[in-house]
Structures are given as C-alpha cells and as structure tokens.
Design a protein around this nucleic acid. Structure first.
Lengths: 347, 347
DNA sequence: TTGTAGGCGTTATCAA
DNA sequence: TTGATAACGCCTACAA
C-alpha cells in the first residue's frame, strides 16, 4: 500500500478510532451519532461513551464533502466595517446570528469594497461549496462578469435593500411611507420649508426616502420650493461629514428651512451639533429628524428625534427566509418590517 | 458498480469535468491550477481556459479534507452583538478582516453568551477542523469541561484582554499606564476628588484601569478618600445605565468629585447628559473623561474627552500574530499597542 | 511533463 | 441491527 502524505494530523480523533474503541464498525458509529433511532440502544450508548471519552468531533470538511452542504451562511456586508453611531449593521447581525446559530449554522462574514478583487472572492466562496446560502446587506449582490451570487444556484436573501426585481427575496422597511408620515407630522405642526440631508446619490434608500418626503409635500399642496435636497457628499460611513456639509448649506439658505430630515443619525447628530454651535435653537428654529434610531441619540440635548429601523427584526426575518428557502419552500419576494417615528425632542 | 446517492449536485463543475474539457488528466488540472510552474505552459493555458469557461471553483470541503486545513479563522466575540457607541468591536473586526482576507482566509464569527450551549458550539467548530485558528475578543477562551480552545492544539490569539498567563499570546493596550497618565493630567490641573465610573466587577479592564488611577493618586500623595469607585451595575453593553447610575451617585456625594473617569464612552456620555441636565457645568464643575474614543463623542457639547483605543491596529496585530503562529513562528506573549488621551472639551 | 492511484473522514447503499 | 464498501473532490507520491 502506498503511503500518502500525512496531511497534517493533529490529535483530532476520527470515526475509525471511535469505532475501534467501541468495538463496532465505522458505519455503525456514523449511524449511532446521526441517526440514533436506527441502532440498538446498547450499541448506541457504547459508541456515545467512546466518542465522549476520545473527545470526538465529526470532521466538518468530510461531512461537507460527502453531504454537499456546509451548514454555513455567508453574510455580505457593505463597505468597511465601520458604521458610525447607527448600529444598524451590528443589530442586523445579532438578529441573523441568533436565528441561524440556533439552527446549527455557522456564519461567514464577507465584506465588499475591500482592497482586492473582493467580489471575486465572494463569488468563489459561493462557488466552492463553502456556504449554503447568503444574506446580502449591500445594495447589490456581488457579481463578476455578469455572474452573480444567485446565478450560482445559491439561496440568497437581501435585507435593507429591495432587490426583488433581481429575483432576490428582500427584507426591507417602509422607508417611503415612514418618511412621508414624518414629513406630514412636521407639516401638521406648521413647518413649510424642508431640507433633506441626503446620503450618497442614487442609492436605493435615498430614492425612496426622498420620494416619501416629496409625496407628503405634494399631498399637502406645498410648492416644490418647499423642499431642498443636499447633494450627496459621500458614503453613509462618512455620516458626520454629510451632516456638517448640510449645516453649511442650511445656514446659507434663505428662507431658512425650519425642518431638516436626515438620511442617518450620524448626519443628523453632526448637523445638530453645528446648528447648536451657531446658536440656533433646536427644535424651535430648526427641527432635526434623524434616521436609524441610534441609541446614543437619546443622550443629546435636545435628544435626537429619529426614525427607528427594526434592524434586529429585519435580521431575524432575513435569516428565517433563508432557512425556508433552504428547506425548499416558497418565500414572498418582499417582506416589510415597519420603522417607527421616535420623537425625543429635536423634532 | 454501486450507485451511490448523488449528494445534492448543483451544477458546480469539478476537476474531472475541467480535465475532460481540457483533454488532460485530473492531476494535471490540479497542478496547473495550484502549481503552475510544474506544468507545460501550453497545457497550463488550455486548462486555465477550460476552467474559466466552465466557471470552475475548487471545492473547499474537498481541499480542506485533503489538506487538513480550512483557511478559516474563527473570531470569538463577547456577549451580544451590540456594542453601544464605542465601535471597538467593529473596528477591531475591520483590522482583523483586512489582514486575514488579504491572506486568503475566511472569517467565521462565533459569539459567546448566546442562549444555547455556545461554548460547546465554539469548541466543536475548533475540533471539527472547521477553523485553523481563532482570535478571541472575550475575556476568556471558551472551554467546556476544562477543555479549552488552545488545548485542541489550535493557534489562538487574544485581543483586548491579556491572557498570556494561560499561554495565549495577547494584544492589549496600555490601560493601566494611560489611565494613570490621564489621572495625573487632571491632578496637575487641580483636581483632587475623583470618581471612577466602573464597568462590571472583577473584569480585566476594570482591574487595570482602576489600578492605574490609584497609582496616580498615590504617586501624588493624595489620600485614598480622593478616589471613589462606583459599583459595577452591569455589562459594558449597558453602558448608558452605568453612566446614569454613576450620575446619581455623583450628585449625592459630598464633597462632590470634580472629575469623573469612565470605563466607556457610553457611560461617559450618559453621565455627561445627566450632569448637564442637572445644570452642572462640564468641565468647570465636573470634568468627564471617557474611554474608547467613540467618534460620536466629538459631537457632544462639550465634546467628550476620552482615551482612544487603537482598536483597528490591535485587530491587525492580532491577525498578524495568528498568521505567524500558523507559519510555525514564535510570537511574543504580549503585544502592547498604545492608547492616547484625546482631549476634546469635557475634561 | 503527464498520468495513475490512493486516501483524507464521512455518509449511504446494500448485503448479511 | 450491523458491517463492508463505494463514493464526495481534491492533492500528491510515484511511475511512465
């Protein structure tokens, strides 16, 4: 018999050793461990005991290879792993992780926008059988040369963005509607001149939130001039800069808007600070409304009013959808979890 | 020949198919793809072309099984995946992920304190060959029945906590020294009565930071009564509550401390808010110093002075150490990356 | 330079 | 109820 290269070999015991220790065949060990019903109770106990004594853990790679699945889910995060005060991503992860872990899945983190050809890396993870499915928190499922995650036949769920038009079931929040509602609230309280502090141009959220505000403006018969929109000055990660830039713009405007609706709490908090530094009273002179529901906003003076996203629940829902897809069930193309307006003082 | 159960079988092509398409043997494909030097250039091109055309990606499970390693690193996070405003964990992850991804490693997230028997889960991941190493951000490496991660022969690196006494190389910051320095700074500016707003009792950080303050107090000949320490009221995740509780205590004290040093920015910001709400001037009546370096602290009025932890760099260092260990190199038991005092206004 | 063959640890089929 | 055995896809020692 040829002697193959001993591939590493830590002390990790394998089934054969357990089988020997228990005085049974390998196949019996396998059954005893994974299919306890189909094996004699006494044998089962003997095997379990041997496994315990040896500290046996089934080799995941071998199982994966044999079964064709890995019990691993990939989470695709947008951009750099720094997300300001909003905590949307960590909360979403908590939701996802909670449900998936409870179902025996491992979580593999992949994030986009890394230096190297990351999209390729992600596609590879999918194609290599490393993962059984993916949850995408970035705006588009990664793709290389027109070949995207879902083309690989991998179950994919999106959250935060609606990409159901690309055939990816999506968990989103009611951005349009809640932004409309918030605006209507402010209109009802007498505001007539609005500033929308926008995030990156053309991004999904921006389209919908802005549309929501416009709808409220239109519905109440206010002129188009009642709403100004800042120019996108960068990614959400640079929320503070967005807020500071918006402050400059607001301070220079005449007539001055009496209400600012922001794309994120980071932007809102930076704007808030700058306004207060300028001696402007919030909310009496300018009302400021954030978006996200960052807990830290409650510590500002005045406390930041904001739109709270149900990030954890969205995560849980996305995970649940993925589990259903893995089970071969049909899932709805779009799942909406409502955000809520959180009035804390600044608007 | 027996007909084995076709295990799933997506359309994922394997080496055999590539070999057929290229008109060579499987082993040649393997060589061409992983050891391009040892194969005829023309053959190599033909193989590469076939692989490209078929959209071939090597199966990770098979490779893992054969090679005995997975190119996957487990990151063990403490507690729930919600970390207040501090961003230490996300920043650390960014640092870790950056270096590891660049070296072709995948990142598996495991977090402690989940409902189920999570320690067992983590140990299993390690024992099952799923991961080649681990970076631990929690205070102790998970263990079950006295069997800990490192007993499994897995390279482990710790960060944030020094557990080098357990044989785990650790990347930490100079908590003791920087806290001492910050206190000395405040003493030099005339402060004589201090409050330390403590985190959870008995935790590593608390021991070292408190010791740092005490050293400064002692070195300058101040009496023990110059320093009061709040009782730990909960985990770091509940930073706001820690701060609020501390505020109550501070307001009730006589003589009132003129400087509060806090275990986290979350605690410091909550304390700050509460003091300002009470009409207390910061920093003139009470100086407030945070810990972590949360970016959002700069938006408060006054802006939060704090001790900035080099979280990203610590992450990078930890990853680097792990890579060295995987390469069989010796690594130092303790690596210290300095924090810096960030004076922004509140102290 | 290329092909043949064996085995990594597991599960599932089939026969006993 | 149990055991022998054939793959899963890959890598590598060895032969050609």
């Amino acid at each position: 018999m040829k002697k193959p290269t001993p591939p590493v070999s830590g002390a990790a015991p394998n089934m054969k050793q357990v089988a020997e220790a228990a005085g049974v065949a390998v196949s019996t060990v396998s059954r005893a461990l994974t299919n306890p019903g189909r094996v004699n109770e006494k044998t089962r106990t003997r095997v379990a005991e041997a496994a315990r004594k040896l500290g046996y853990t089934p080799n995941a790679a071998a199982r994966s290879l044999r079964m064709g699945k890995s019990k691993t889910i990939m989470i695709v995060l947008p951009g750099a792993l720094y997300y300001g005060a909003s905590q949307i991503i960590p909360l979403a992860l908590a939701g996802i992780d909670g449900l998936l872990a409870r179902n025996g899945f491992k979580i593999l983190i992949a994030n986009l926008d890394r230096e190297e050809a990351t999209e390729q890396h992600i596609i590879n993870l999918a194609g290599s059988g490393t993962v059984d499915g993916a949850i995408v928190l970035s705006s588009a499922p990664p793709s290389v040369g027109g070949r995207s995650l879902k083309d690989l036949g991998l179950p994919v769920v999106a959250m935060l963005h609606d990409i159901s038009d690309q055939g990816v079931p999506s968990v989103i929040t009611n951005e349009h509607q809640i932004m409309c509602a918030a605006t209507e609230l402010l209109i009802a309280e007498g505001h007539r001149q609005f500033l929308y502090v926008a995030g990156p141009d053309g991004v999904y959220h921006e389209v919908h939130r802005y549309a929501g505000i416009r709808e409220a403006i239109a519905r109440h018969g206010l002129p188009e001039s009642a709403l100004t929109r800042t120019e996108g000055v960068g990614a959400y990660q640079e929320g503070f800069n967005i807020g500071f830039a918006a402050a400059e713009q607001l301070l220079a405007m005449a007539p001055r808007p009496t209400a600012a609706l922001c794309c994120s709490d980071d932007a809102a908090l930076a704007l808030l600070k700058r306004l207060l530094d300028e001696g402007i009273e919030v909310p009496s002179e300018v009302a400021v409304m954030g978006f996200d529901g960052a807990a830290v906003g409650a510590l500002f003076r005045p406390a930041l009013s904001t739109i709270e996203q149900p990030a954890t629940e969205m995560g849980t829902r996305a995970a649940a959808l993925l589990l259903e897809m893995l089970a071969g069930e049909e899932v709805p193309p779009v799942t909406v979890v409502d955000s809520t307006i959180l009035r804390r003082g600044s608007a």
